[in-house]
Nucleic acid binder design. Sequence first.
DNA 1: AACACCGCCTGAGCGC
DNA 2: TGCGCTCAGGCGGTGT
Length: 299
Amino acid sequence: MPELPEVECVRRSIERRVVGRRVVAVELRRADILQPAGGMRRGTAPVVTTRGGAGETCTRLLRGQAVIRAERHGKRLAIVAKDGSAVGVHLGMSGRLLVFDPETGAGDEPFSGVHTHAVWRLDDGSRLAFVDHRRFGGLWDWSASDGPQAWFAGMGPDALAIGPVTLWRGLGGTRRGLKAALLDQQVVAGLGNIYADELLFNARLHPLTPANRISQERAAGLVRRVRTLLNRAIAAGGSTLRDYRDGDGASGGYQLRHRVYGRAGLPCGRRSCPGRVTSATVAGRTTAWCPVCQPEKRH
DNA sequence: AACACCGCCTGAGCGC
DNA sequence: TGCGCTCAGGCGGTGT
């Protein structure tokens, strides 16, 4: 499930293998993977595609442009061209951005599969593909005047950049449980179900703790812990449960270090803690925590 | 404001 | 073996 660490690993793959290249051609195989800018998502409104029907070669989506950088904010990724235009990418649940280099030969399969929705041909002969079998992800086509900045600004501060006071204020503005508040991308951008649970475990906070009861000191602790957690996950290549791969098709390793996520019924991983990880639906999500380390404090 | 719930989508994993 | 069921989840929508 791509959350901030996984998206960051993909960003770095793009930086290594796509930045500096020029896009020779773009093939959009599924027009409905392209999201209307600022509009509603697929399935809730008629999809308005102004260019590039399925199987067609696109006139935008970076065609003819030199890629100069890859930016990330929360779980959103933008591949930016020299002229300021950009492609926005959201991986959703199962999205992948894969780079294939014919010189290495391996990994061609995803490019011919039915779940490959867009393919960029680069000037060095390599190809970048957006593959997403569940199609919860999507692409955005930003012009030089749009840019991805408004898209990024439409969400809260990035989880790796947020400061303690900002987080404290964000949490203080809601009586929701911490789990729900941390998943709210307007409060802090980048956390999903896995890292929200891991963060709460590390901070020894119950998922239902009212967000506005977090002191400034606790918020500062959360900021320190979220940075440590996410940086460690990035260093491990992210968490691969089923679908996630980086741009080179490599799995992550951080799933082996999850302390509570996916460990319901197992002993708490904290040394000498007699508790067992429990799970329940909180804020509409399967949530795992240790009832001993993370007791629910009433009043 | 803050919930619950729905739809989107596929494949893994299960019981039978 | 193979069928049908449930589940997973990000996100943005509607309804309460």
